[in-house]
Design a protein around this nucleic acid. Structure first.
Length: 554
RNA sequence: UGGCCAAUGGUGUAAUGGUAACACAGCAGAUUUUGGUUCUGUUAUUCUUGGUUCGAGUCCAGGUUGGCCAACCA
């Protein structure tokens, strides 16, 4: 039963390279810049790069593209490593572009000697002005024809720290009239007297992306350098540098980056959400970051499954966040322990149940288990049910509690509502019911069958808990299409806190790495904000709710 | 008014010149001690105009639409 799964276009290229003998094994790399936390879009790239070398002979390196000391920090390096490991992938080598600074410097010297690079004294504005536009050629810099000796000396002085920031750059000498703007004498090195998170103050000149990335790939013998579509125009320069430097010819391939509905997917915007306190931090459970999803209760399996289902292609896309939710529900349904928690309590008194009596009911931990295991749930005369599970004047097809109506209490008895108690203001304060003694779960001889089953918690055994309910961070589906500032579309109701929920006693021993399904409520996990005094649960995702959908129609 | 990339149901991805398929979403139903799960059925797709071919989603040409390119960011 080996159904051929079709290959994506990158796998096709690799199989061809392997089949025709161009390569016998492959090397890929995941090259994050440590200037922010990884998001779900990066997960696609991680799954692709590491997945390829799981499937084909070869290995994947983790290489930090740390060529801009101004925005990069060790905190980000650590978070990135943790996120990749959590996703379940292992890199062969942990590398840094900054490790190659000496080599890169030599490459630059080589270009100067080849007459293919020069030191330019122009200002940033002057360079921009001479750059031309996509439809007009640029003009040559007045410094373009400096002698090799002068260039060598100037570049050495740049490195020595003789010149202030921004006063000089090293540029490739290509063609100011090139139709590809990136080939119009691109800047290779700039001066930044800035402290680097790894090299400290050893350098005051730093290579640009284009002069670091391809060369780093080449140094590592990366065979297939996979990046996103916006780097397509860079490929020409990537190839040019490799050719002129006569170094290992890594090849770049581009795929379309991932977009998700109801969220933003750029580190710049995510950083803004963090800095301007729209969320608690990078790992806020509403964030589309890996750490956010982790804290929210998503599993690595579900994220990998999502990436797998979405696939790899070259066209712009906006993926329905519903697919991600489907993937996490699918996994959590299999592994989550079922528990009962009442969010918004309504007291039920079972008038014909003996006062002070407590029965231990057996309730299955997970009906999906191959061998079902059970936990004890205490049952007594006074219970809490969900306020929304009772209606005094119910509509048709309301299979819950209502005057004269019967329901089953999950894993316990069938009860019938006899009386509604109200306060002076007319609010329902209590519902008085009678139970069918012969309807006990597992030994039901009552002959009564009911449509509805409710979750419940015994009042005297209830454990208090805080529950945090999350909704989408933005109000519009496609932020790319939305006009104006993306922050105008923030969903201010994306976090709803239930401060006083009532949980069954089994949750008292809830563990951080365990996933729970609160019956009829959704999937939850213990949050790191929990302490001795209060347990905090995050809602990972709701259950599908056919009743809510039915009601929406009316 | 340049160059490059892309265009298949609502969304995403297949079909590699030979019956347009799969998943999610939607809709209808069955089962259910979770209005969950599971199961069944079902709606809906090749941007456009030409050309090549016995045959085109696929190849070619023109057009249209969308994206990317003028940071000392990556």
């Amino acid at each position: 039963m080996s159904e051929e799964k079709s290959l994506n276009f990158i796998e096709e290229i690799i199989e061809e390279d392997l089949n025709n003998g161009k390569h016998t094994s492959i090397v890929t790399r995941f090259p994050p810049e440590p200037n922010g936390y990884l998001h779900i879009g990066h997960a696609t790239s991680i799954c692709l790069n590491f997945g390829l070398t799981n499937k084909y002979p070869g290995y994947t390196n983790l290489r930090f593209d740390d060529t801009n000391p101004v925005t990069e920090e060790t905190e980000y390096v650590e978070s990135i490593k943790a996120d990749i490991q959590w996703l379940g992938f292992k890199w062969k080598n942990e590398l840094y572009a900054s490790d190659y600074f000496p080599q890169l410097y030599e490459y630059a010297v080589k270009l100067i000697k080849l007459g293919l690079a020069y030191v330019d004294d122009s200002t940033s504005e002057e360079i921009a002005a001479m750059k031309g536009t996509p439809t007009e050629a640029g003009t040559n810099s007045p410094y373009r024809n400096r002698s090799e000796e002068e260039n060598l000396q100037l570049f050495a002085q740049m490195k020595e720290g003789v010149f202030p920031d921004g006063s000089k750059t090293l540029r490739a000498k290509i063609d100011m009239a090139h139709v590809n703007m990136l080939m119009r004498d691109p800047i290779l090195y700039r001066i930044k007297h800035a402290h680097h998170h790894r090299t400290g103050d050893a350098w005051c000149i730093y290579p640009m992306y284009d002069f670091a990335h391809g060369q780093s790939d080449s140094i590592e013998n990366v065979t297939h350098s996979i990046c996103t579509l916006e780097f397509v125009p860079h490929r020409e320069l990537y190839d040019w540098l490799i050719k002129k430097l006569e170094i290992y010819p890594s090849r770049q391939y581009e795929f379309a980056r991932r977009n998700l509905t109801y969220t933003v997917m750029s580190k710049r915007k995510l950083l803004q959400l963090v800095n301007e306190k729209f969320v608690e931090g990078w790992d806020d459970p509403r964030m589309p970051t890996i750490s956010g999803f982790r804290r929210r209760g998503y599993t690595p399996e579900s994220i990998r499954e999502f990436c797998d289902r979405v696939g790899i292609a070259k066209r712009d896309n906006v993926i329905d966040v519903g697919l991600l939710e489907f993937c996490v529900r699918e996994h959590l349904n299999k592994i989550a322990s079922r528990r009962m928690v009442v969010f918004d309590p309504l007291k039920v008194v079972i008038t014909n149940y003996e006062e002070g009596k407590v029965e231990m009911m057996q309730s299955e931990n997970n009906p999906e288990e191959e061998t079902i295991t059970y936990r004890d749930v205490p049952f007594s005369r006074e219970l809490y049910i969900e306020k929304e599970d009772f209606m005094e004047n119910p509509p048709k097809k309301f299979f819950r509690l209502a005057p004269g109506q019967m329901v089953r209490l999950k894993s316990a008895y069938i009860i019938k509502c006899d009386e509604v108690v109200k306060d002076e203001a007319g609010n329902i304060t209590e519902v008085r019911c009678s139970y069918l003694p012969e309807s006990r779960s597992g030994s039901n001889t009552s002959g009564v069958s009911v449509k509805g089953t409710l979750h419940w918690v015994s009042v005297q055994h209830a454990v208090p808990a805080e529950v945090r309910l999350y909704d989408r961070l933005f109000k519009v589906e496609d932020l790319g299409e939305a006009e104006g500032d993306f922050k105008d579309y923030i969903n201010t109701g994306s976090l709803q806190v239930v401060e006083h929920a009532y949980a069954e006693p089994a949750l008292r021993t809830a563990k951080f790495d365990e996933r729970y399904q609160f019956l009829r409520k959704g999937y939850f996990c213990l949050d790191k904000d929990s302490n001795e005094e209060v347990m905090v649960f995050n809602r990972t995702v709701t259950l599908k709710d056919a009743w809510a959908k039915e009601q929406k129609k009316n």
